[in-house]
Design a binder for these strands. Structure first.
Length: 848
DNA sequence: GAGTTTGAAACT
DNA sequence: CAGTTTCAAACTC
């Protein structure tokens, strides 16, 4: 298997970029051959290109991919991941919050990193191997070119010197075998001529073994790469490559004075074959020997190279204590203060080779290995997998720790990216967790669980950073639905903007918040099977709830407290909001968890079959057509309306029993409330609001309207999805996080809304609503997305008094009840489903 | 914190 | 589609 062809086979817009670096290096047939075979330069360039491109372009297409559509591919990831994980049972870090955080964040993070790293290792190995194939006379030249190439490649990857130290360490480690070999050759003289030979062989072995391992694992590179349609993979590949490249660059650059030594070694005749025992020498032996050599010849190029990784690690420790510590913690085989970490990572080729040999049963070369080395070898593929993850863990560490700490100091974009990755992994891991149970997988890179239900998003949008964090992490728990399913069919479409938001917010976050977020991620995994559910909570639900409430509504969104509905009915606020229940929930026998994804989705489907708008926001913004028509009602509180209207009898629509009041909207003609005193509305005795206008102008035709309104609501609903598609700028999508009370209508945190509404009270209702409209400017949406050409507009425009002309279709609403799809409102972004057109079409088809 | 009220959701 | 039941949030004490 040849990784570079696999890469080139990738269906990526960067193909042209792939070829470019190759051509720049081509100078001779030999080098052309080498270049074609050597993946170092082109592959790195490719990865780098992808990395940065993915920052800008790749994410959007990924967002549009339905998590269910990609189930198959995700399964591949999952399988591979599972294999790796099995080989490393104790992957999780071992400490408190960090452990929780990593358990949620890091698992899926491994996948892309792992792929990237394996690939890279193979590339390096192949490159060196081909290097060896060249006649000795050419080696010097090639060595120079190799160095140049390495430097050249690294030139574009220096951006993340600080932030990627952790990852860098791993990559440095992965190539540390090379200097080690060089050291040996320097020490042992020309007879071995192993400077490149051994290294090459080891690297070659590494590559081949890696490949073989990958095949055994069942990882099809092509599939894997083809699966890499997500930011995570591409970004991580890029980061890994660039880090490795940088590491190499650093090493080579630092040892320019010793290049001659290196070249002299290269130019030596290949009189000797590699000592198989050395070749297969376990890493500990190699380490010891190398260390000796380093001590004896500290000034040599080889020693310089050899020291580099550890030195860099030390540097990393100094500059990135958190990241490295986390790394160390995450490494199950390492112990604080020991060199286990280095043992595992500094000699990637050796240990990989050893592992490979162990797998193949060719352990004879290990006759002379010491006990420790034998232990390593005996671990077989386990060690291999660990080693493979060694580098990736660094990336992971970087993402976990560095993202929140160090990366903040770096390129914001980079930090942002990594945060995205981290987030994606969190969710992906969540999904994976669920997938383990349900048999369905989701792309670890696609935030499958994030169908942004804007209710959920707005739920916690109260303006504080903490709240925003919570919101976004709540978003991860959102339930994704297959596309064909009405309201949730395209939830993933919002992932990108949402996660961008999250990323941006997280950049501003603090470690405490990070841990809180991580805890939030962990919450997703707290399923009954694992004893994480609140069912097992010894605390009284109400007590807990009170505690949560007392802790401040601004910090924690209210969770459900269902006891009999299993959180699979709209009674459940979480379920109704399209989010999974999490740890703060006090529900009992909860099925609204990722582990019951199938059940949840099926239930949702069923409910939506009854009422397609069941999961639509209860409070929806009024149509822009109202604005267009100049009707002043859009400046009133009632410009946002409850989709169905309330049916209050005793609360006078003045308590949160009333959904209109709860949503901060006025009662409308669609309400059947009695004695309404909702001052935002006009349905009750106080009819000073738009309702009065509405009633005056078109109340009589209301019965005929509703069916049409239903359909209009559905269409508008789709328009909203369009608005929240990834094509919209992040800020635009984030507007859904409007911190206005109305924006949180129908969210699980409605109490916040109500409180804010109450604070405003009836004295200044209009300014509040007007403000909301200002914060949710309709003009931000391109006209094409606004549906200017949609039938809605025409209808609305022609009905200034909101008397809607129903399209000729019969609206297939299951509910003949009045108000199921009444006035199209606009004050709140209705539904976050973002699937661009197909979702819309499906949705429309569904009701035509 | 226990109990009550309330109205939406679900059911018949 | 109306009536009833179930349910959980909101509310009161």
């Amino acid at each position: 298997m040849d990784p570079p062809p696999s890469l080139s086979d990738m269906d990526t817009p960067n193909r042209n970029h792939i070829q470019k670096p190759i051509s720049t290096v081509e100078e001779s047939p030999v080098f052309n051959y080498i270049s074609n075979l050597s993946p170092i330069e082109p592959v790195k360039s490719v990865h780098i290109t992808q990395s940065f491109q993915s920052l800008n372009f790749s994410s959007i297409p990924a967002v549009f991919t339905s998590p269910h559509i990609s189930t198959q591919k995700e399964s591949k990831y999952l399988r591979k991941y599972q294999f790796v994980d099995l080989s490393k049972p104790d992957f999780s870090p071992d400490g408190g919050d960090e452990r929780k955080a990593s358990s949620g964040v890091s698992l899926s993070a491994l996948l892309p990193n792992r792929s990237a790293d394996v690939h890279e290792q193979c590339n390096v190995g192949a490159s060196i191997e081909e290097f060896n194939v060249v006649p000795p006379t050419e080696r010097k030249k090639l060595a120079i070119k190799l160095c140049q190439t390495l430097k050249y490649d690294c030139g574009s990857s220096r951006k993340n010197d600080t932030s990627c130290n952790d990852a860098k360490m791993g990559n440095e480690a992965s190539i540390s075998a090379t200097p080690a070999s060089l050291v040996q050759c320097l020490k042992e003289g020309p007879e071995e001529n192993c400077s490149t030979v051994e290294t090459k062989v080891e690297s070659k072995g590494t590559c081949q073994l890696e490949q073989a391992e990958e095949e055994r694992v069942g990882c099809d590179w092509e599939n894997l790469i083809s699966d890499a349609t997500t930011n995570d993979l591409l970004n991580l590949v890029g980061s890994t490559e660039s880090d490795a490249c940088r590491a190499q660059d650093n090493e080579f650059a630092d040892s320019d004075n010793n290049v001659n030594s290196f070249l002299s070694l290269l130019s030596r005749p290949p009189e000797d074959k590699i000592d198989s025992s050395q070749e297969a020498r376990p890493e500990v032996d190699c380490r010891e020997q190398d260390q000796k050599l380093v001590d004896s010849d500290p000034n040599s190029f080889a020693s310089s190279l050899l020291r580099s990784p550890e030195d860099n690690i030390d540097d990393s420790q100094e500059t990135q204590p958190l990241g490295f510590q986390k790394h160390a913690i995450q490494d199950p085989g390492s112990h604080p203060g020991e060199v286990g970490e280095l043992n595992e990572t500094d000699h990637t080729p050796e240990i990989l080779l050893s592992s490979h040999q162990c797998e193949q049963g060719t352990r004879d070369p290990h006759e002379k290995m010491d006990g420790e080395a034998r232990d390593y070898v005996s671990l077989g593929c386990k060690v291999l997998s660990q080693q493979q993850r060694g580098t990736r863990r660094r990336c992971l560490v970087f993402e976990v720790g560095g993202v929140h700490k160090k990366s903040l100091e770096d390129d914001p974009k980079r930090s942002h990216l990594n945060k995205l990755q981290c987030d994606g992994k969190s969710v992906a891991d969540d999904k994976q967790s669920a997938s383990h149970m349900t048999g369905t997988g989701s792309s670890p890179c696609k935030l499958p669980g994030i169908g942004l239900h804007l209710n959920a998003l707005a739920t916690t949008s109260k303006g504080s950073g903490v709240t925003k964090h919570e919101t976004l992490y709540s978003g991860r728990r959102l339930i994704s639905m297959p596309k064909p399913v009405g309201s949730f069919h395209s939830l993933t479409g919002v992932q990108q903007p949402l996660d961008k938001s999250l990323a941006m917010i997280s950049i501003e976050g603090e470690s405490s918040q990070v841990m809180k977020e991580a805890q939030g991620v962990q919450d997703v995994f707290q399923v009954p099977e694992f004893g994480g559910g609140e069912e097992f909570s010894p605390n009284s639900p109400k007590k807990k709830r009170r505690r949560l409430e007392s802790a401040g509504e601004s910090e924690s969104c209210k969770r459900c407290n269902c006891k009999k509905s299993k959180c699979l009915k709209l009674y459940c606020e979480c379920f109704a909001a399209g989010v999974y229940c999490v740890e703060p929930c006090l529900c009992q026998d909860c099925f609204n968890k990722p582990v019951h994804e199938d059940t949840v989705l099926a239930t949702r489907k069923q409910i939506e079959s009854r009422n397609p708008l069941a999961f639509a926001p209860k409070v929806i913004r009024s149509s822009e057509s109202v604005v267009n028509t100049g009707v002043e009602s859009n400046k009133t509180p009632a410009s946002a309306r409850h989709k169905k209207g309330c049916n209050c009898k005793k609360s006078s629509c003045l308590k949160k029993y009333c959904e209109c009041f709860q949503g901060g909207v006025g009662c409308s003609s669609d309400c059947r409330c009695e004695g309404c005193k909702n001052k935002f509305g006009t349905n009750g005795s106080d009819r000073s609001g738009p309702k009065g206008i509405e009633e005056q102008e078109g109340e009589e035709s209301e019965p005929a309207e509703n069916d049409g309104q239903n359909e209009l609501l559905m269409i508008e609903y789709q328009e909203e999805e369009m608005q929240y598609s990834g094509a919209l700028p992040f800020t635009h999508s984030f507007r859904n996080c409007s911190f206005e009370p109305l924006a949180v209508a129908s969210s699980p945190c409605l109490e916040n809304t109500s409180q804010m509404v109450r604070d405003f009270d009836s004295l200044h209702p209009k300014p509040q609503f007007e403000k909301h409209h200002q914060n949710v400017p309709e003009d931000e949406t391109p006209d094409i997305l606004r549906g200017d050409c949609s039938p809605i507009n025409g209808v609305k425009t022609s009905s200034p008094n909101r008397k809607r002309v129903s399209p000729p279709h019969n609206f297939g609403s299951s509910s003949g009840r009045r108000g199921v799809g009444d006035t199209v409102l606009q004050s709140i972004p209705p539904f976050p489903s973002l699937t661009p057109h197909h979702g819309r079409n499906n949705f429309l088809r569904k009701f035509q």
